[in-house]
Amino acid sequence: MKKKNTEHAHGARYAAVAGDEQLIREFRPLLESKGFVLLMAHDTHAIRAAGAALAAGLELSMSDGSTKKDSLLLLEEHLPASAMIVSSSVTVTAARQASWMRHPERLIGLCAFPTLMNGPLAEFAIPIGTAASIVRSAHALFAELGIEMVTVQDRVGMVLPGILAQIINEAFFAVQYNVATPEDIDTAMKAGAGYPKGPVEWGETIGFPNIVRLLDAMRSESGEERYRVAPLLRELSVSGTFWHANIASEAAVQEVLQLGDALQPDADASAHTQGREKKIKRTR
């Protein structure tokens, strides 16, 4: 039924989308509020049916390899030749992505990063080979969405995602080294430094795997040790949940402590238990 609507809706405009669910979910309301109908990239029948009414292809993923490449090639194959392809270039430079394409002049890099999709401006990276007409079309499209395009150099991390990843990473080093509780760190940065969100809660909203993926990409791209990931953050990116949210009850805390105590000599058990209980409570 949906396919029929796209085929016959007179005057409708379309955008084809591929990528991470979280990013699509964040960007979708803005596009739809401006009258765009979103088509998923794998729905090639609907994309072809949309024809010239398809304004752009959006590749919104934080992946760093074949998934992104596959999505771009899919969009390129099925989109009309005139349609621009706007792709997240936070973890892979736009230039590298352009090198995967048969028609690289269609590509523009966008700072598509969780929690940053609905601001009044957005960072863009424009590879050397991008056609001037595509840049003009992108300006027009994003102006219509109420987003000012700010062009930055084409590099992994762009501007704000790189800064955020570093802040969040440092917060997790601080948590890991017991400098302060996660709650106190968030309070400190909001009340003491004017941050809109605490770095711990911000990291949780962005998604720990996304932060780790970005830091790893920045480290790999720059070769700089300063982007090494806090071990706790990497651990959380694997567990996929906030570290203290796993402990649901006092009973569960006790269970965790008892499991740990089984590994301690009796004489030291009490002191170890007290120490760890305090630490866990501070972080809950």
């Binding site: 401006l121 957005a122 501007v159 704000l160 800064i163 941050y195």
Partner: peptide, 13 residues
């Protein structure tokens, strides 16, 4: 540009 991005896109003070 960095200041504008941090303030307007990031919401920093």
């Amino acid at each position: 540009a960095i200041d504008r991005i941090v303030q307007l896109q990031g919401g920093f003070e």
